[in-house]
Simulated scan of single mutants.
Amino acid sequence: MKRAIFPGTFDPFTTGHYSVVQRALTFMDEVIIGIGINESKNTHFPIDRRVQVIQDFYKDEPRIKVMAYSNLTVDFAQEVGAKFVIRGIRTVKDFEYEESIADINRKLAGIETILLFTEPELSCVSSTLVRELLSYNKDISQFIPKGMEL
């Protein structure tokens, strides 16, 4: 079975994240959305809420699991038996950052990283920007997957 993790804070889970998951399902048997607990990040939604919202959204997709983790991503991947890490790339800056992490993960655990480039129409969507819109009570419906309840 080809199992991958898709790690992130997902605060909130955006249309960009959704696109990456859907595309990963075309070549993976299972995708585990790993919600990293990072105390240094200023999150809008508590971790339990993020897990619940994404689980509810994917309740009818048995190939998707949602889990929180607080250790290194590479260790989380090993714990769940994933041989791949899926990451979305929007910019050259993202690529350079992800390349370094991918190299370390491969050296530490033999885990390969698969980079999926963002679809052009989603390149402006980031959780950071969506959180900012939320803080100003703006409508974010176009930036989260249809049917997702925050």
Rank of each mutant, 00 (worst) to 15 (best):
H44K: 14
H44M: 15
F45L: 12
I47T: 04
D48E: 15
R49M: 05
R50K: 13
V51W: 04
V51S: 01
Q52S: 04
Q52A: 03
Q52W: 01
V53Q: 02
V53M: 06
Q55A: 11
D56M: 11
Y58R: 00
D60F: 08
D60T: 11
D60G: 13
P62F: 05
R63K: 14
I64Y: 06
I64V: 12
V66M: 05
V66K: 00
Y69G: 02
S70G: 14
S70I: 03
S70Q: 11
N71G: 15
T73R: 03
D75F: 06
F76T: 08
F76C: 12
F76G: 00
A77I: 09
A77L: 04
Q78N: 13
A82G: 05
K83F: 09
K83Y: 10
F84N: 02
F84S: 10
V85M: 14
V85W: 03
I86A: 09
I86K: 07
R87Q: 08
R87T: 04
G88V: 13
G88K: 08
I89T: 13
R90D: 08
R90T: 10
T91V: 15
T91E: 15
V92C: 12
K93D: 14
K93E: 14
K93H: 13
F95R: 01
F95Q: 02
Y97H: 13
E98F: 11
E99W: 10
E99R: 10
E99V: 09
S100N: 14
S100C: 13
I101K: 02
I101H: 07
A102E: 02
I104L: 08
I104K: 00
L108C: 06
A109N: 06
G110D: 04
E112A: 10
E112K: 04
T113D: 04
T113W: 00
I114Y: 01
L115R: 02
L115K: 03
L115M: 14
L116I: 14
L116G: 04
E119Q: 07
P120N: 10
E121A: 11
L122C: 03
C124N: 09
S126G: 07
L129D: 02
L129A: 09
V130S: 00
E132W: 11
E132L: 12
L134T: 00
L134W: 10
L134N: 05
S135Y: 07
Y136R: 13
